[in-house]
Design a protein around this nucleic acid. Structure first.
Lengths: 246, 246
DNA sequence: AGTCTGATGTTCGATTATCGCGCAGATGCG
DNA sequence: CGCATCTGCGCGATAATCGAACATCAGACT
């Protein structure tokens, strides 16, 4: 995992990268939902790096304000969100995308989420509530969803070329069902998934082919206990409106 | 700005940090709302680093998937949000905080935001909509607000000890008005600010003294054109509910 | 079209920042 | 108390990094 070796063409020559920076980012991503707070040796075990190396990297993060010491353990600070804000504000998520997402959430009557592909995952990049419906799995910005088993992921795959979608499904080791679901989504415009990410949950999503080249998916999910889901056709309208903004 | 030198006690010895990692993070934070897309020389100018150094650091970010090339310019990818997700999920923002924030946004009738202090700024860490009210300034997670001129910032200062609040106001070079506003907020429980962050906007916030030590502020804002703001007392109830979760 | 200039991309020998072993101290357990 | 294990940290050796200099590119001008 910690490697300057290129895994695929066109790779980046090892001499064209910074090993220390790569290690530093490896340390940074050790802080996650399961382990928000860790000691130096815990980070060393999780990252596979030497304790002394981890110590210098963590102290660098402390110096810059991204991490703070809590006793002999370390945790991320809110400053890490500012890095995310660079992405969100750079793409005008707050100014342009969020109001449209909010309006469609009200119109459709369900909380909506917007996701983009990151490797073989769908990553949440915006969300809107329409009612005080509790998020089912506690998703936040940055939450990952599987590409082949979630409606959002399938909508993202549907937005790729058939070749790219097939390659991604192969990389995921997904069965024919996932690829068929993606093909169906491409044909109908609406991707669905039931009970794959969470038992009893139906999800629907539409592909957002951004005018400036960004690919995203907008969708909602409904638990069986909440009654029948709304007509997903509204997602197509939302997708068209969002496409102009991405 | 790019320095291993310690600015305040207790500092971290230069030998205890990684200069390459520090430079890398300096490059990462160059990507912001104003400059979401930059070339190597542009990043070099903005960061004060040599072009060759920037090139290696940027290619490291490309290799790890945090940045992608768009022609000869580079931009952040959604993967950067996953780092933010580590913070958000580690503090159960999605699972525990968001539903409470959503419920109070409905109850109070205004979109609500939750902020935490980051140095001399307030940083947005969560937000909830009640109606399809467009965010005024396009705020996203990670957006910064001034500590002394915003209701949220003043509520955060009110949650600090009087000594710490005074020191922060001194560091900000704020006038007596800011400090008086903080003192008033500490007394009443509600911080307010009118027309300082944006003309014609009234903001109100309450301090959230988290049970586990986290300090936050919850608040809303209303533009004069939207009519009278709701009674801010609801923020006190929201603050108490959120305090149990932070 | 050709030339010039400034900007940008890239290389590689020199230098220094980084590595990680080994030691000292702390902690927990029998 | 003794022992085993874990953690923090120093410093000589070395590999990673630096950045000057060169190569290439892009745009302006004639």
């Amino acid at each position: 995992m910690l490697s300057r070796a290129s895994d695929g063409p066109p790779g980046i020559a090892p001499g064209d990268m910074s090993l220390s920076f790569l290690k530093g980012l490896t340390v940074l991503k050790c802080f996650d939902a399961e382990t928000p707070q860790m000691s130096i040796p815990e980070i060393a075990r999780k990252s596979g790096l030497d304790r002394a190396v981890v110590r210098r990297l963590v102290l660098t993060l402390v110096h810059l304000g991204y991490v703070r010491a809590e006793g002999s353990r370390y945790a991320l600070t809110p400053r890490i969100l500012v890095l995310a804000g660079g992405f969100l504000q750079g793409r005008r998520m707050g100014l342009a995308v969020q109001p449209v997402l909010d309006a469609f959430a009200v119109q459709i009557g369900r909380p909506l989420v917007l996701a983009m592909r990151d490797g073989t995952d769908a990553v949440l990049v915006a969300q809107a509530q329409s009612l005080a419906v509790p998020p089912r799995l506690g998703f936040t910005l940055g939450s990952r969803l599987p590409l082949a088993e979630s409606a959002l992921g399938r909508a993202l795959l549907a937005g790729e070329t058939p070749e790219a979608a097939r390659a991604l499904c192969a990389a995921l080791g997904t069965g024919d069902e996932g690829l068929r679901a993606v093909d169906a989504a491409r044909a109908s415009g609406i991707a669905t998934a039931t009970g794959l990410v969470e038992a009893g949950v139906f999800g629907a999503a539409a592909t957002v082919a951004g005018a400036s080249g960004d690919l995203a998916a907008v969708g909602f999910s409904v638990h069986a206990s909440e009654g029948a889901p709304p007509d997903p056709a509204g997602l197509l309208t939302a997708a068209r409106a969002l496409a102009a903004l991405l």
